[in-house]
Write a protein that binds this DNA or RNA. Structure first.
Lengths: 196, 196
DNA sequence: CAAAAAAAAGACCGATTGGTCTATTTTGTA
DNA sequence: TACAAAATAGACCAATCGGTCTTTTTTTTG
């Protein structure tokens, strides 16, 4: 890894949580400078502009969540257990430092939907990826005869994502997780109900 | 209504949709000026600072949604029908101009949770108000023997709010309402299932 | 070890930010 | 209709915004 690749990665790592908490419009170049301890010249030497830093930061945040879910899911085999990883993870979101600032998809979607087309595009792709992941888990479960075959993969995926994001929003703003626990408890019941 | 009260109201009406689309950090004084067609002196003559305009704009946006829901709910009598007003309204959110820019609670929550304590407080109160409204509708339904008496009012309220907000977020960012329709369809089934 | 190339620092730029203050206009009232 | 008071306009302010450019430092390479 070259020097510049290294600092580029460093800048992304350090600014990713800042963008996730302050948002795109709320994060300034001086925020980026103080978060990294680097000069303006250095940052513009590695990124074309603030936009590029923001996009890389989103990718980093989203990737981190994805990696975590992936390893947890692949640690289990049964389809029902795999689906249960989602409510189980988000139920205790405060335990995971990279979720403290909130879900990157949720934050980015609500800010960028009317203002920042490129970030919006990233959020849409992330949502689609998440949805098809869940759908595939369900299809796999049906094939493996672990999930009822009349289950609608899309419906379950949409309900799971909606519930998680909606409950997460409430947990973040209220600083309590009673609502999140109730919603995730319901999701667990729903998932267990898919069992063949 | 005095002149100043009049223009104050005018400023709030004109800027409310701007704050809801661009967010607090994304809306500038010049945005406020061009949205109202008024001078800086006029705006600062009626509001102490940008904060006060933002808070008044949130109240306006939230109130508008509340008023609409209230009249639709009071137009029905049966508790199940009253609960169904929520999925029925949000299913066709694009029909209501004041929801085009998104749900004010969702937008404000995700932006202000880490940055703007006063807006955050408003969002929390709005969420609590919504939650108790739904809980009360369910309690009323149990008393009137329209809803199963083993129904947990809080659980239903949390699920409804989570589902609506999560699905709404997806609809806004993807510019399509397939997910919203699926989620609201599920909510309808769930509500009908509470019928005694 | 010297020269060339790459990377980082920071002075500097015009534009825009939120906000102030005075001049002007509009309004209500005597 | 004259005058005081309220309301609006807009010039002006320092600070900050995103971004450029030259200088200095660090690294690579012959």
């Amino acid at each position: 890894m070259s020097k510049s690749e290294n600092t580029r990665q460093f800048i992304v790592e350090k600014t990713a949580p800042v963008f996730n908490t302050k948002g795109y419009a709320g994060t300034s170049m001086s925020d980026i400078m103080s978060a990294t301890g680097l000069s303006k010249g250095c940052i513009y030497g590695n990124f074309e502009n603030k936009d590029e830093v923001a996009l890389a930061a989103f990718d980093f945040n989203h990737n981190k969540v994805n990696e975590h879910m992936k390893t947890r899911i692949l640690a289990t085999d049964n389809s029902i257990e795999r689906l249960l990883v989602y409510p189980d993870t988000y139920k205790n979101y405060f335990k995971y430092s990279y979720l403290q600032a909130g879900c990157p998809i949720l934050n980015t979607s609500t800010e960028a939907d009317d203002t920042h087309p490129r970030l919006k595009e990233r959020a849409i792709k992330a949502l689609n990826f998440w949805k098809t992941s869940i759908e595939n888990q369900i299809k796999r479960g049906i094939v493996r005869k672990e999930i009822k075959e009349d289950t609608d993969p899309t419906e379950v995926a949409v309900i799971m994502i909606s519930m998680i994001e909606g409950a997460f929003m409430q947990a973040k703003v209220t600083n309590r997780n009673t609502e999140l626990k109730i919603a995730m408890g319901f999701l667990e019941k729903m998932i267990l109900n898919l069992k063949l």
